[in-house]
Amino acid sequence: MTDVASRRDVDERPAITERVVTLTVNGRPHTLRLDTRVTLLDALRDRLGLVGTKKGCDQGACGACTVHLDGRRVLACLTLAAQAEGRAITTIEGVSGADGQHPVQQAFMEHDGFQCGFCTPGQIMSAVALMAEGRAGSDAEIREFMSGNLCRCGAYPNIVAAIREAASQGGHDAGL
């Protein structure tokens, strides 16, 4: 008699498929051999050491892992690293220019737009993108387009104030 359960376990194991992927992160190319199932978030954090992008829920619900892919915000936990090949990836480590902080980063500091700081990189990356998209017209609009980024500490009024200030000072022209 054949052990069907053992045979089924062997047959259902997925084959691990690796490929060489070149990711351009913050303007620098990085060539990596990755399992095709590796997320962009895990490649950034575990393979490239860019730990500013946070792993919050790992299900696309909190926004802590927000990065820019060709200037558009994406959730790195829901994006496969292989999908980002040949595209420009910007992380929180690369959002500021050579002249220092991005205007959104400065405004977050001035308005105390963070408490524990865990969500702050994702909040900043989303704020930079929403300003570039021209969606910082009113507080209600800012709240709507930042609604995918959660803050467990409840710093939302300060985050909105920071974005409003950065947008009013022309911060939408920088960073993307």
Rank of each mutant, 00 (worst) to 15 (best):
T2I: 13
T2A: 10
D3H: 03
D3Y: 01
V4I: 11
V4M: 06
V4L: 12
A5T: 04
S6A: 15
R7C: 01
R8I: 15
R8Y: 11
D9L: 15
V10Q: 09
D11A: 15
A15D: 11
T17M: 11
T17V: 15
R19N: 00
V20E: 08
V20S: 06
V20G: 00
L23W: 03
G27N: 02
H30R: 04
H30G: 02
L32R: 11
L32F: 09
L32A: 07
R33P: 01
R33D: 10
D35W: 12
D35A: 12
T36V: 15
R37I: 01
L41W: 08
D42F: 12
D42L: 13
R47E: 14
T53M: 08
K55A: 15
G56M: 10
D58L: 10
D58T: 08
D58K: 09
Q59H: 14
G60N: 10
A61R: 07
C62S: 07
G63S: 02
A64P: 09
V67P: 06
H68M: 14
L69P: 01
L69D: 05
D70L: 12
G71F: 07
L75C: 04
A76M: 05
A76V: 08
C77N: 02
L78F: 00
L80N: 00
A81F: 05
A82Q: 01
Q83P: 01
E85I: 04
R87K: 15
A88E: 15
I92A: 04
E93M: 15
S96I: 02
S96D: 13
A98L: 15
G100N: 11
G100M: 14
H102W: 10
A107D: 03
F108V: 12
F108S: 09
F108A: 07
M109H: 10
M109F: 12
M109I: 15
H111P: 04
D112E: 14
F114Y: 15
Q115V: 13
C116E: 06
F118N: 12
C119H: 08
T120I: 05
P121W: 05
I124L: 12
I124A: 07
S126P: 04
L130K: 03
M131E: 00
G134I: 06
G134L: 09
A136V: 06
S138A: 04
D139Y: 06
A140H: 02
A140N: 03
E141A: 10
I142Q: 02
F145I: 03
G148P: 04
N149L: 13
L150K: 07
R152P: 06
R152T: 03
R152F: 06
C153H: 08
G154Y: 08
Y156G: 08
P157C: 13
I159E: 03
V160E: 03
E165K: 13
A167C: 01
G171K: 05
D173S: 07
G175F: 14
G175D: 11
